[in-house]
Design a protein around this nucleic acid. Structure first.
Lengths: 343, 343
DNA sequence: CTGTTAGCGCCTTCAA
DNA sequence: TTGAAGGCGCTAACAG
């Protein structure tokens, strides 16, 4: 692999000069500049980022750690964050915790070791090593949490207004005439899931409906398991709720699978609305009513905050955490139709 | 940020000793080892990967460049590759070309600069800078291409057996009694798309059916645009084909959208089968018949080859390119049902 | 076993 | 405007 030295030799100049033409740090005369460029081309020279970073202690790289790339919400967030990073000349590297605390720990260490200049973090759903997050921030690497906001850590965060968004979805089901509405959530250890559940309760209470514990079901983000949780409670036509609201995408898949397994039609037999698009909700027959998060904006906004923190430098330690809550939008489609319609 | 020197001072030993306890490169006596570990903990020391890489010229990092993380196929590939990398103690960083040649070029340079030890590449669909790929390989960074295999570059590659897989899907439609079968492809500049088209033709020819040019439609991987391409050709009940086969996931979404826009029911009005799962094909009403690629295996297999190449070292230049073609599986669901059924 | 030291490739003063 | 030289943090000889 050619080095700056080789380039300098071939061009008949010193390494300093080569460095200057590469970085434009100091003006270099036309003829030398041309010679250097030619040498770079001839050798197919690529500056060694590693060495440069060591010298400057700037990697111009951000890291993003998500639980699962195959949940459609996260790639969208990544795209948004990538765009924002790119605007500022940063690149973004993405890693997967598979929603596993140990893996998350390893990967945070990895990112730390790699000297990314900032980290976007969606915590794993198990017990999160909050201490580690604080440690990383103390080490001078800013962290911004997305979507899932850890409790008790003063950290910048960007997410959707969870309670209001869930309330909006449930309000809609109520407005459509549904009375017994069940909710299916992800792991309740996650604050955003708890807040979505809160929104559900607020909606019911606001409408003077009773919150029944038997109508609050918890899943684990795995569609098959969620389907298995729901199916038995959907069999009896009497005990069965009139509508279901689910709080995230994978859970929605599970619920829909349970409907299919139980031979239930939507919305005739049971109505449905969910948090998060499944990429094809509008194509379902019937199409699925959805509370849509501004996923790209979440990523973009979080990355911007992170970049600002990086720019600010270590001053961050003292300043207040920034908390951004974005609005979700309700896409009303067919699945949430009124009860009792038998077309 | 603490350095190895600080750790050495605090522990009262030399930097060499610290390095040895960290890497286990040489046995270190119990008492010293404990002192070093304590110092590491106290300082919250994280070895600087950047410096280590500079010294060893080993980053133990692989890069993967995909066109679009939001196409579900790619995250699955990444998961597979990540698993394989992890097995060998490597980590994987993922970047997005947004299917743009220039961006791809930049990102390849970035990965090259970052000194990843190998690159998994899914080329962008425009004209690909093949020269760059060769240059990277000449620079000693092995490259394995996935899914989309560039022409005329002797490079290792892993993909599905495209022609056979497409043929399997179309054969099935034929077996269900369809005669006028249209195909909707992605950009035909991609070899895998051409091969899938070949498979379609083989299937028709094998069944003694005519290949009609008017039934070969090309899209650009953007569902909305694909829908716009299909819709006008689906309006006339006479000219309309009896079945459609699409060659990838985003295209399938477009086709389904066109069905919806034209008020066509599947399979009553028109039958449908496609390459690639949409994560929820089984939930559609009707569920969608799909040719499923072993996405994770593709990623895993490609990463293993890459790791092997890295291990082999520069010997790679001489050896033959490895070409792996995996089998797809046909998931028969409702959308491909026989014609003329009006339930 | 432990300490010392020479670079890895690059950027950045500092002189010339 | 150009060149020479120090050092970023770490590993890997080599010496003790």
């Amino acid at each position: 692999m050619p080095t700056i030295k080789k380039v300098a030799e071939l061009a008949g100049v010193s390494v300093g000069t080569v460095s200057h033409v590469i970085n434009g740090s100091v003006p270099v005369s036309e003829p030398l500049r041309l010679k250097v460029r030619a040498a770079i081309r001839d050798l197919n020279y690529q500056p060694n980022h590693v060495a440069r970073s060591l010298k400057t202690s700037k990697t111009r790289t951000l890291g993003i750690l998500v639980p699962d790339l195959t949940i459609t919400f996260f790639p969208q967030v990544i795209r948004g964050a990538e765009d924002a990073a790119r605007e500022s000349g940063y690149s973004l590297i993405a890693v997967n915790s598979t929603d596993d605390g140990d893996r998350q720990k390893e990967l945070l260490s990895l990112l730390h070791s790699q000297r990314v200049e900032g980290i976007l973090l969606v915590v794993a759903s198990g017990p999160s090593p909050l201490a580690q997050i604080s440690r990383i921030m103390e080490a001078g690497i800013p962290v911004v949490c997305l979507d899932r906001i850890p409790d008790r850590v003063p950290v910048d965060s960007v997410s959707v207004e969870d309670a209001a968004a869930a309330k909006m979805g449930v309000d809609h089901l109520i407005a459509m005439g549904h009375r017994r509405i069940a909710i299916v959530t992800g792991p309740i250890s996650l604050k955003n899931e708890r807040r979505r559940l809160d929104g559900y309760k607020q909606a019911l209470e606001g409408a003077g409906l009773e919150v029944e514990d038997e109508l609050i079901w918890h899943g684990n983000l795995r569609p098959e398991d969620v389907a298995a949780v729901c199916a038995p409670r959907l069999r009896g036509p009497l005990s069965r709720p009139g509508a279901i609201f689910s709080t995230n995408g994978p859970t929605a898949l599970g619920v829909l699978r349970a409907f299919r397994d139980c031979g239930l039609r939507t919305p005739q037999d049971i109505a449905f609305a969910t948090f998060d698009e499944l990429t094809c909700d509008d194509l379902f027959t019937p199409s699925v009513t959805t509370v849509v998060q501004p996923a790209r904006d979440i990523g973009c906004c979080a990355a911007r905050i992170l970049l600002r923190r990086i720019e600010e430098g270590p001053a961050q330690n003292v300043s207040q955490p920034i908390t951004i809550r974005l609005q979700a939008a309700l896409k009303i489609r067919e699945s949430s139709g009124p009860p009792g319609v038998k077309p």
